[in-house]
Design a protein around this nucleic acid. Structure first.
Lengths: 338, 338
DNA sequence: TTGAAAGCGCTAACAA
DNA sequence: TTGTTAGCGCTTTCAA
């Protein structure tokens, strides 16, 4: 794998200087057409591909976006993630950027990874996902003045560029829907509240119920992890009460899938005997039995958008819109019936 | 974000040459202890972080592993993927490597991405996943002599380093299990057969049945996509026949999840009235109702292992084992009952 | 124990 | 239209 063709090899071959070759390759106008063609032909023939590292060192730009995926727990599987990464990756590729990916559990090591990648100029900017109420990553990058765009907001400041879906609005719609279906004992399974999106969704549930003259019975509120396992366990808990909820709203689809299993195990007919709703509309949400009522997130699009904004930022282009809040799309399926 | 501290800045500050500073920072022995300490202290104070690109240009190594994820279909979601990436990423990080990630649909553009990354020395080696029966990626890299390690095998040659699970052995166990449960009309939903793992699994089913004196009725065989949607549709098809299968083996968990929904919709009691099995043991497999009988793949471990092998390869270390075939672990749950 | 100089592959300011 | 020169930040001979 040695002996890659360099600009120097081409220069020698065509009897021109490296400068001329470089300019010819970039199609600059101040080089004789014949030279340009010759150089390009020879480059092609010799199988020349520019050494990206050299270009980047010279340009002082990594042409690389960083994405450090927070992993929760050992067996980490995020159905969102592949779709989001596809969105980010495709947009990045389209604009000539690479995507540098790491996974790190929140904490010290995670921050060290940010620090190294940023200070070592390994990446030009970061994409932050799963924002936390108090988010050290955002702290750090803001203070450093290092470019980043977040998917999600935080509780502390909103002086940074982000794309988010309006989770509060989404969950309000679910609350309305369940209330309008006649449910009064409504349980709620929430993801950990240090995740900002969980706060918005809970708040949305509260507001939505209030708007129908109801209040969330706090004893029906359970905080869990981001997993089906957690949804399963918490749902069983609620369903075992003497007065079990007739509807179970869940802060994300994974929790809902766990809840569905719990209800099925109890022999409840989901949809009619108990209503269950999710949030996110992961691909699997259509494939539970019955299919899940949920709120859709255009996750691929969000990935693309976040990446596009970050690249604009990195290249010093002004952002058309620094903060994007997307209207959620409510999707009624058969897990909540009249 | 300008004005990053360089080795030159430190040199100026401590009144030494850049050479000395470089050596001191690397802890070389041929520099005076006082100088070394001074340099290291000052570097710390000034917040020095080496410019990775410069180091890499000089070393002629990208210290980066490439992973180009084949995306099938637009709404691409692979439950495997996040876990695999976590394994690869963590191993890479541990050994000082970055992970460069792209997503590309199989085809022309995919190959172009490999070409650019390889020839532009953007990465030192590739990890290939979802190997195809005839795999152009492997062709290309082999011919170029570019380092790579595959997760999976191909039909053409096996003269390359890989890690794979013995899918044939795994599916044989499922065949035995179903046959021993008394099933005679056994349906099979297969992923596309150009994916090599699908071939092994189908072969395993055939052999396993043969070993119990049965043959796979080809009219019960359906080839689908890698999605629940596909499993759902194909299962419905088979279940609508006048003599529907009493057991439905599936080539992966996603297909099985779709099949589970189809069976539920038909009012079949899964486990007793119809047996359904998956393959992969994705996290969700425990959370269908009833939980899925399947074959486990230690996907995180495989990711780690593949990355470790690739790094050894890249660094010219001999591989302890060039081809690794893992014994599958059969997991019986409640979707297949006596 | 230290430093000068060369070079990794490329781009760009400047001069010719 | 072309070439010379310098430099991106770093490592590594080689000589002192």
């Amino acid at each position: 794998m040695a002996g890659a063709v360099t600009i120097k090899d081409i220069a020698r071959r065509v009897g021109r200087s490296v400068t001329t070759v470089s300019r010819a390759l970039h199609g600059y106008s101040d080089v004789a057409p014949e030279t340009r063609e010759l150089v390009q032909r020879v480059a092609q023939e010799m199988g020349y591909t520019p050494n990206v590292m050299a270009q980047r060192l010279q340009k002082q730009r990594a042409e690389t976006l960083g994405l450090i995926l927070p992993t929760f727990g050992p067996r980490f599987s995020d159905p969102f993630f592949s779709e989001f990464v596809a969105g980010v990756g495709n947009q990045a590729a389209e604009r000539g950027y690479d995507l540098l990916l790491s996974t790190r559990a929140p904490g010290e090591e995670e921050m060290a990874a940010y620090r190294r990648a940023a200070l070592g100029r390994r990446v030009d900017g970061f994409i932050i996902i799963r924002t936390r109420a108090r988010d050290e990553r955002i702290h750090f990058l803001r203070q450093l003045g290092f470019p980043f765009v977040a998917f999600g907001r935080t509780a502390e400041t909103d002086d940074f560029p982000y794309v988010d879906e309006d989770g509060e609005a989404g969950m309000r719609q679910i609350a309305h829907h369940l209330a309008d279906l006649g449910h009064r004992r409504i349980g709620y399974l929430s993801p950990p509240l240090d995740l900002m999106f969980a706060q918005y969704r809970l708040e949305g549930l509260r507001r939505g119920l209030a708007e129908r003259g109801l209040t969330l019975d706090e004893t029906y509120l359970r905080i869990g992890a981001l997993t089906e396992q957690s949804g399963y366990a918490l749902a069983l808990e609620l369903l075992s009460r003497s007065e079990p909820p007739t509807a179970l709203a869940c802060g994300n689809d994974l929790l809902a899938i766990g809840a569905v299993r719990a209800a099925q195990e109890r022999g409840l007919k989901i949809g009619s005997e108990i209503a269950i709703s999710g949030f996110d509309d992961i691909p699997l949400a259509q494939h539970t039995f019955p299919p899940l009522t949920t709120v859709h997130q255009p996750i691929y699009q969000i990935g693309k958008r976040v990446a596009a904004m970050l690249i604009d930022l990195v290249e010093g282009r002004p952002l058309a819109q620094r903060q994007v809040l997307l209207e959620p799309e409510f999707v009624v399926r058969q897990s909540t019936l009249p």
